[in-house]
Design a protein around this nucleic acid. Structure first.
Length: 568
DNA sequence: GTAGTCTGTCATGAT
DNA sequence: TGATCATGACAGACT
């Protein structure tokens, strides 16, 4: 039953007190807030020729702006009339039928009105209250509780605008927000593999499978650590192309291609010789289980060599071992060190993985990858000294003496008759190294050289790892930049969608409001004038007709109102 | 000849 | 405290 509350009713106070303040907010107020937020286009006259209050200057726009809640409730609201028997004429148009009402703010206003006022003589809801796909402004009957012009929408608008406009800030914020980033990565881990999944209507949501995540997780089992992602250290020479083609052409790919060219595997003759030279036992796995540093943040990743052995790393690392019991021929004893069969330190090319190429996109998208990158690099077992570059001209290698292949440290060691191979000097564990040293009566110069050789050799490997990590970080950042750009485009599209959706529903609401007044009749069958009455939603969702005071009309509306009175 | 790149080396700080 | 690692800087070799 439609009621026009008598606000001088003795129970007015009680009536008011029963409702939360916000719940007594009139429909107009909410409408006005909505209109203020969205700058409603005002309809003019309806089909009946009735000058519509919404025309041109919506009477609700400003009439209660200064006193948004005084209308009908203030002390001057003396005109309120309780309409116990207000009836509605049959609906002139099937508002419900022709255009289904969307859910307005999670509450089906049309449904509420229709149910409460029997507008359409139908019990069917005018919309599906739960059908709102995205926005759910409010879960209750209270559609909008905006108390002033600054609404959530404005805030949202400003928020989105700021996001969309301040790209740098956005990128930084998002990058900083690990959680968000993680969500994003989880949310759209497919987009990268599908290459520039821009302008998608929503984030793709194919989750990374557990196996993929685990694969990434276990990818950090190779020997040397780094702080970048697994992509760089895992790539093999020819596999960079695969990785590049997988994700399209972007900055990361550029680096990838660049990297392919720059970081060729250390499989030169030098490397082969080193493999032959190297003598080690399985315990002498390459290198370094290292601490990681990611943008000033260090991660300590305990990935001992044991785990490297126990778990197949994502990056295939080739190890060649020689029986440790076989004594390593000292450098001076081996006239042809390359003939040594060998020892074997892990085969150290920069191992590059097919796995990376295959799982590139997944790895990049995997949030875990940002936490547990495979910072390991398998490196060539090499002695210290300058590594000769691959011979570009075959003619130069024909009669090269072996000495020309020797590194500087090897030459120095040979010059000082150091009885330990350079490879052993560098790669032997400390205990074994000292043991070896104790076997010989070495001069101070020899000892000093040996220490330098060992230091330089380890540092060389460390430098190589460091450079790989650096490029790895660059690649990772390039991927993140691309990801952020994709996200930005998605947000823009989403924003446009919601803006249009809001406008559509606004129009529906406007249509409904007009429809209500067109069909609303008092006991005598007369129309309710929208100038004199307004609709309000009570706490229980029922719609009441509330007389409005003149003070609630803005000057323009008053002017039109007066003109209407003069005309007719 | 010059510029850019690659890589070994040193110095330094951290672990 | 020494060994090792990480990394910036530098220099030489190379393209």
């Amino acid at each position: 039953m439609i009621q026009t509350p008598q606000f001088h009713h003795p129970h007015h106070r009680a009536f008011q007190s029963r409702m939360p303040y916000v719940r007594t907010m009139s429909m107009e107020q909410r409408w006005q807030d909505l209109a203020n937020l969205l700058s409603f286009p005002g309809p003019t006259t309806d089909a009946s020729g009735m000058h519509h209050p919404f025309g041109h200057h919506h009477p609700l726009h400003n009439y209660n702006h200064s006193h948004p809640h005084s209308m009908g409730y203030g002390p001057d609201a003396t005109r309120g009339v309780l309409l116990h028997n207000a009836t509605l004429a049959p609906p002139m148009g099937d508002v419900n039928g022709t255009v289904p009402f969307g859910n307005i703010g999670g509450t089906n206003l049309g449904n509420a009105v229709a149910t409460s006022m029997n507008l359409t003589n139908s019990s069917e809801p005018m919309g599906e209250s739960n059908s709102a796909p995205h926005y759910k402004l409010e879960p209750t009957h209270d559609i909008m509780y905006y108390q002033n012009g600054s609404s959530e929408f404005n805030q949202t608008d400003g928020f989105l605008s700021s996001i969309l406009n301040d790209e740098d800030l956005q990128l930084m914020d998002m990058a900083m927000n690990e959680g968000m980033y993680t969500m994003r990565m989880l949310d759209s881990n497919n987009s990268l593999s599908s290459n520039v999944n821009i302008c998608s209507t929503g984030a793709s949501s194919t989750p990374m499978t557990r196996s993929e995540m685990e694969r990434v997780d276990t990818s950090s089992d190779s020997a040397v650590s780094s702080m970048g992602s697994e992509r760089v250290p895992s790539l093999s020479d020819g596999e960079w192309c695969d990785a590049g083609s997988d994700s399209g052409h972007n900055v990361g790919d550029h680096f990838a291609a660049d990297y392919q060219a720059k970081y060729r595997p250390y499989d030169y003759s030098y490397s082969s010789r080193q493999h032959a030279l190297s003598a080690s036992d399985p315990a002498r796995l390459p290198v370094a289980q290292k601490k990681h540093q990611m943008f000033g943040k260090r991660y300590f990743q305990e990935q001992g060599s044991a785990s490297s052995l126990n778990q197949p790393p994502l990056t295939p690392v080739k190890y060649e071992y020689r029986d440790p019991s076989v004594p390593t021929t000292s450098f001076t004893n081996a006239s042809h060190p390359e003939d040594e069969v060998g020892p074997k330190v892990p085969d150290l090319k920069y191992s590059c993985s097919m796995e990376f190429g295959r799982h590139h996109s997944a790895i990049v998208r995997n949030p875990i990858s940002h936490i547990q990158h495979n910072h390991t690099y398998s490196l060539p077992p090499e002695s210290s000294g300058v590594m000769p570059r691959p011979m570009s001209r075959d003619k130069t290698k024909s009669k090269k003496s072996e000495e020309e292949h020797l590194t500087r440290d090897e030459k120095r060691a040979r010059a000082l008759n150091v009885p330990i191979s350079v490879d052993d000097i560098i790669n032997l564990p400390m205990d074994e190294f000292n043991e070896r040293l104790s076997k010989y009566d070495l001069s101070e110069a020899q000892l000093s050289l040996i220490r330098d050789i060992r230091r330089r050799g380890k540092n060389k490997v460390a430098a190589q790892n460091c450079r790989k990590r650096k490029l790895d970080q660059i690649n990772t950042l390039a991927d993140e930049v691309k990801e952020m750009r994709d996200r930005k485009m998605r947000l823009i599209n989403e924003y446009d969608y919601h803006t249009n959706e809001l406008k559509r529903r606004k129009d529906k609401y406007q249509q409904l409001y007009r429809h209500v007044f067109q069909n609303l009749r008092d006991a005598d069958g007369n129309h309710y004038s929208p100038y004199h009455y307004s609709l309000q939603t009570s706490a229980d969702g029922s719609i009441i007709v509330v007389p409005r005071s003149n003070s609630t009309l803005n000057p323009q509306d008053k002017k039109e109102h007066m003109q209407d009175h003069k005309n007719g």
